[in-house]
Amino acid sequence: MTLNFNDETFRGDYTFRNSPAAIRRFPFPFDQDSYMYSVNLEPHAGGREGSPFQNRFDVDEHYVAEMKDREITLTEDPLRCQSLPHMELAGWDFLELVMVSKSEDYPELFTLNRDGDRWHWINRPLGIEQRFTFLDPTTLPCGPMEYITRQTQGDHALLDQRDGNLWMDAGMVTSQADWSLDFDIGMNFYEWHAPVPKANEMGVFQRALKFLLNLQQGAPVRRLNWTMTVNPRLDTSPENYHKWGPEKRTITPENVGEKQHLRVELQTLWRLPRSNAIAFPIRCYLMSLEDIVSQPKWGRRLHRVLRDLPDELAEYKGFAVNRPVIVDYLSKFDDGAETSPGIFPD
């Protein structure tokens, strides 16, 4: 597999683009023509070849540009990466998981040599070579979680397990769908989900938590979540809402296909071996409506999902104000034909 990394931006001039291959492998989140919350967890044990489900940590054409965008965000606001003192071991667990997975799944991009606790890591796309002692934080330029998540696409939370609950006690969060790590750090599973409408009454969180408390090592799980974002912006944080908020009101019938993006999160959950914490990567994929409708099945389906979505969900996901323009645009790509089962394009 050869990967060409895009030179692109996720802010300012927004030069982010998906190649034709990236469009075909986009993790479209709807397996039917309607949407409601569910505990939609499945084993993260590979998937269709070339899809973002195939490898443990998907690396795609946006890798290098996303890591540059993360660096900009962290330079402006170091509070996007925080770890409570008891979470360092979980950070090492996660560093090991990522380095081992990436070096095995992408040997041409990443190499990990281990001689006891003396490790040698090579990250070719980012031009990094590091020798360090595993579990010795003085041998890395920053904490283990920060070190590895500066080299891994997606946001990442590390969840401590105690008192029959999960606690968000560490994280690297620079591409979030409008939630604040700095505010939510230290919260338990019910607390950080508190602002989500409807799902609590449906019992979604009780069932999901019960499942996750029993998550086993070597048996990671995944789910897809989604929202809508104007412009291909990774940093849609509440911290900077007053800066990106005005862009939300720039949608017109003429530009909606190009500016409005479907934002999909591939969330995976991993039991970590030493700390018994859970690693929770939240990988973000963006695609413009005009790229979505290039796959006729997706155009039809997205139209039906967004048209019929309950108002509360459109409000919570933050696109209620643009929904009429979006649905009107998509309606032109829905001829009423039946759609095939599953998420993949025809």
Binding site: S180, F183, G186, M187, P238, H242, G245, P246, R249
Partner: peptide
Amino acid sequence: SRRLGAFQGVCVDAET
């Protein structure tokens, strides 16, 4: 947030 002992305030006119 129990850690901060505070409610969250968010810009009310961010979009407009």
